[in-house]
Nucleic acid binder design. Structure first.
Length: 497
RNA sequence: GAGGCGUUAGCUCAGUUGGCAGAGCAACGGCCUUUUAAGCCGUGGGUCCCGGGUUCGAUCCCCGGACGCCUCACCA
């Protein structure tokens, strides 16, 4: 078990003693210091100013931040101060500060939060520096920080005490700043196309909209069993019934399943629905959306992910699930529509589908087995069987299939969309079939949702909708190897004493 | 859920073919008013993840456990 201890030891004892002294003087945790400048802005503004220019300007600045390095002499010290914008050092001289303040300077520890006021100058070695005329200790750091050169690498501490990761690893801060840009970019993209951002329930009586096991909880006042949502889909489509024509939601889903580098039990999903659109409208929309994000983040369409060079600029590949599977295993596409033949072909290719699976489910599993790892460059998978798509509209003229796509990049599903099923009677039949599977032991089959069927009975405009796994999109666009690097506080096993 | 690998000072890491536990940074004391991973002199700091076993002796070997990472399974 590794964790930075919070118990007393030699390293924190002296810092606590300093804090006690501060308390005694009444200045332990002041809140009256107001920074007026930012380190990064100062560095940028004066990047081209030499010593005479700075002397002529005589600019006084006020910054606040964390002491990340300290080089102390007898009667002076340099302290590197880091705020959210960057790092700037302050030169703290005994003859420029009152006696009490200089004692504080001598007692500064790495990690302390301080505020500094002073004029900007350049040192002999040319580094832009604040000549401090005022220094305030704003919050004492009572624990030693991770090592200044190597930072923090112990992944367990990085995840359990993410604040230490953030304050010692700049690239981690950058990843989460990029994540925020991605979310803002998605919102901008959709709202500019007249999509309305909405929020739907996370506490649901029947968790539907996806094939997954829900978390269970209970409401005391109503003495009611509740489940955390596994998808917002069915509520968003109720909103289409209500008359909103384009809606989207960015929010957390919860699935009571295993963890991996690509799975966290709570994860962020974008879902959007557009009335009077079909799946054919979604493909270019998703493509434009992702390319736009890459442009914003990287200024281009070529991105690196691990060992892969991904080009989002080329036309994205399209792969027919049924036809490409048939071609690969050397059978006719029609064979994959027969339960018996499909089962036999799957077995021959080392795939063991779950009990009760029909041709559609078997073929889908076979496809994933054969092709998933090959889809490195962005690939739209098309022609999904109806059997694995209980909320999607059957294809006109070929009801074995639905009009659906999934987007894969570096072998991972990033998005999933389809023309929506708005026929309430068909939807009821699909739910009924799912309930039957559930009775056969498929814990992830959809439950019946009568309320949703009732909503469809009032008439839902023809529509198409899409879900995008945001954490995976962030992984892709920020070159992060694990979903834990895309989520600030990923779930870890509880520590035991 | 299964398998593999890992856990040594606050942090980053060495190391012990089974015989007093090591470095750098951080810390503590001293010198130092333009440093840049500041420098110089000195000092302290360990349940070698936990519990058993083998052994004269275990941080090291064996067994069990905790936590983490990776792969697989489930899934997005």
């Amino acid at each position: 078990m590794s964790r930075v201890p919070v118990s007393e030891d030699d390293l924190t004892a002296t810092r606590r003693a300093k804090l006690a002294t501060l308390r005694a003087s009444g200045f332990a945790y002041p809140n009256d210091f107001r920074p007026e400048d930012r380190a990064g802005e100062i560095l940028e503004t004066h990047a081209g100013d030499d010593t005479p220019a700075l002397e002529e300007l005589g600019r006084e600045v006020v910054i606040a931040g964390r002491v990340m390095a300290k080089r102390s002499f007898g009667k002076a010290a340099f302290a590197v101060i880091e705020d959210a914008s960057g790092r700037l050092q302050a030169y703290l001289r005994k003859d420029q500060l009152d006696e009490e303040t200089f004692l504080l300077v001598k007692g500064l520890d790495l990690g302390d939060r301080i505020g500094v006021r002073g004029r900007v100058f350049r040192t002999r070695t040319g580094e832009l520096t604040i000549a401090a005329t005022e220094m305030r200790l704003l919050a004492k750091c009572l624990h030693p920080l991770p090592e200044k050169w190597h930072g923090l690498t112990d992944v367990e501490i990085r995840y359990r005490q993410r604040y230490l990761d953030l304050l010692s690893n700049a690239e981690v801060r950058e990843s989460f700043q990029r994540r925020a840009k991605i979310l803002a970019g998605l919102r901008g993209f959709l709202t500019s196309r007249d999509f309305l951002e909405v929020e739907t329930p996370i506490l649901q009586t029947v968790a539907g909209g996806a094939a997954a096991k829900p978390f269970l909880t209970h409401h005391n006042a109503l003495d009611m069993k509740l489940q955390l949502r596994i998808a917002p889909e069915l509520y968003l489509k109720r909103l289409l019934v209500g008359g909103f024509e384009r809606v989207f939601e960015i929010g957390r889903n919860f699935r009571n399943e295993g963890l991996s580098t690509r799975h966290n039990p709570e994860f962020t999903m974008l879902e959007f629905y557009q009335s009077y659109a079909t799946v054919d409208d979604l493909l270019p929309l998703v493509e434009e959306m992702v390319v736009g994000l890459a442009q914003t983040l990287h200024g281009g369409t070529k991105i690196t992910y691990g060992d892969h060079e991904i080009d989002l600029g080329k036309p994205w590949a399209r792969l027919s699930l049924v036809n490409s599977t048939a071609e690969r295993v050397g059978c006719s596409p029609d064979d994959l529509r027969s339960d018996a033949k499909a089962a036999e072909i799957a077995k021959k290719n080392g795939v063991q589908p779950p009990a009760g699976a029909g041709a559609g489910k078997i073929t889908t599993e076979l496809f994933e087995h054969l092709f998933e790892n090959e889809m490195v460059q962005p690939t739209f998978v098309l022609d999904f069987p109806r059997e694995v798509s209980p909320l999607a509209r059957p294809r006109d003229g070929d009801p074995f299939l639905v009009d659906r796509f999934e987007l894969y990049v570096v072998g991972r599903e990033i998005a999933n969309g389809f023309s929506e099923l708005n026929d309430p009677e068909d939807q009821r039949e699909r739910f009924t079939a799912q309930v039957a599977r559930r009775a056969q032991g498929d814990e992830e089959a959809h439950p019946m949702d009568e309320d949703y069927v009732t909503a469809l009975e009032y008439g839902m405009a023809p529509a198409a909708g899409c879900g995008v796994g945001i954490d995976r999109l962030v992984m892709l666009l920020c070159n992060l190897p694990s979903i834990r690097d895309a989520i600030l506080f990923p779930l870890l096993r509880a520590e035991r004493p």
